[in-house]
Computed example of a mutant assay.
Amino acid sequence: MILKIALFAGLADRIGTSSLNFTYPHDTVTADKLKEALAEEYPSAAQLIAVSFVAINQEYASGNVLITEQDEVALIPPVSGGQPTDEYDENPNIDELYTITTHPISVEEVTRQVITPAHGAALTFTGTTREWTDGRRTVHLEYEAYVPMALAKLRQIGAEIGEQWPGSCCAICHRIGNVGIAEISVVIAVSSPHRDSCYEASRYAIERLKQIVPIWKKEMWEDGSEWKGHGLGPWNPSVPGSFSSESK
């Protein structure tokens, strides 16, 4: 069978393509076996393949899940964070709670989506590009996303917040492409009936985004560049969100 595999960030750089047609000698293959076969075919990328996750039909897959030629397959390296659910919106609809855009983000518009007469608290987290990191000057950041899956995972975060903090509302907008110094890369707005829930849900949203949403950033320095991924310890996006007021 021939599998079309989407690649991203440093993995696409290492292999030299963002879309790979990979021939496998059988009609099915498990996610783990596919990684082994890819590592053998592309030894220079073997270490990165080993720590990546296979996504099947826009969901993270465990190692024993079977893949067929009909499946949509992507290899997800460690993450940092016409058909509106299938492509990013060049001019995002501000009535959508979860969006990915190439345009500058309006903090006011994202926040407006969660303001409601029933809620007494609203918080907005704004992520921006800092100029200096560990003594190196950043020129700008480049963000890349597996857009349809990223949107699905943003919606999942919203659903999880609704379950853990009933009545809360969340909106998230993430920018991709080039993001300059002091420009906004992500805005997360949360509102709740009471402030305690609002604080907790807001923190949960950004931590969960870093854990499960397939978005990567490339730090462009004066003297080089590097893809940055997940920064929260051992990366396992298949593990359910665990942050709560009890785990603070």
Rank of each mutant, 00 (worst) to 15 (best):
K153L: 15
K248D: 07
Q83P: 12
Y24R: 01
N93C: 10
A159Y: 13
I157N: 11
A50T: 04
E59D: 11
I215W: 13
A189I: 08
G231F: 07
A121N: 06
F22Q: 02
P104Y: 03
S18I: 01
R208E: 13
C173H: 12
Y204V: 04
D95Y: 14
R195K: 13
I76T: 03
S185C: 13
A182K: 13
R195Q: 11
I5R: 05
N236R: 13
E160K: 13
H230L: 05
A201F: 09
L141Y: 14
I115T: 08
V107Y: 04
P25E: 02
S62K: 10
K248C: 08
D13L: 00
Y88S: 06
Q70R: 12
T128Q: 10
K217I: 02
T138W: 05
T30S: 15
S242L: 07
N57L: 02
G135T: 03
E41Q: 14
A9D: 01
L3G: 04
G10P: 01
V147H: 12
A159W: 12
E41T: 03
G177Q: 03
A205G: 07
G162C: 12
H194I: 03
M149N: 11
L7G: 05
V147I: 15
K248F: 03
A37L: 02
V139L: 15
R195T: 08
Y42V: 00
N64R: 08
H140P: 00
S225C: 09
G82S: 12
H194K: 10
R130E: 10
S19Q: 14
I215C: 10
G233R: 06
G229T: 09
S52N: 02
G229N: 08
D223V: 03
I15V: 00
A122P: 00
D27G: 02
D27R: 05
V114D: 06
E36C: 01
W235K: 09
R195M: 11
V29N: 01
S202H: 07
S197E: 13
A145T: 12
V147N: 08
H174M: 08
I184F: 08
R155Q: 15
W165D: 06
I2Y: 13
P237F: 05
A145L: 11
A9L: 01
V29E: 00
S80V: 04
G158M: 14
L11P: 02
H140L: 08
I76K: 09
V190T: 11
K153T: 09
R195C: 07
D13F: 01
I206D: 09
Q211M: 13
P78I: 01
E200R: 14
S191D: 06
I67F: 01
I100N: 04
N178I: 14
R112Y: 02
H26W: 00
W235G: 06
N178Q: 10
M1I: 00
G81K: 10
D13E: 12
H174N: 15
D134G: 14
A201R: 11
A145W: 12
G162P: 07
E142P: 00
T138M: 12
E226K: 14
N178V: 14
S168P: 05
A55D: 08
E131D: 09
V79F: 08
L3R: 08
W165F: 12
R195W: 10
T30G: 04
G224K: 11
R203W: 09
E108F: 00
R208P: 04
N236C: 10
I181A: 04
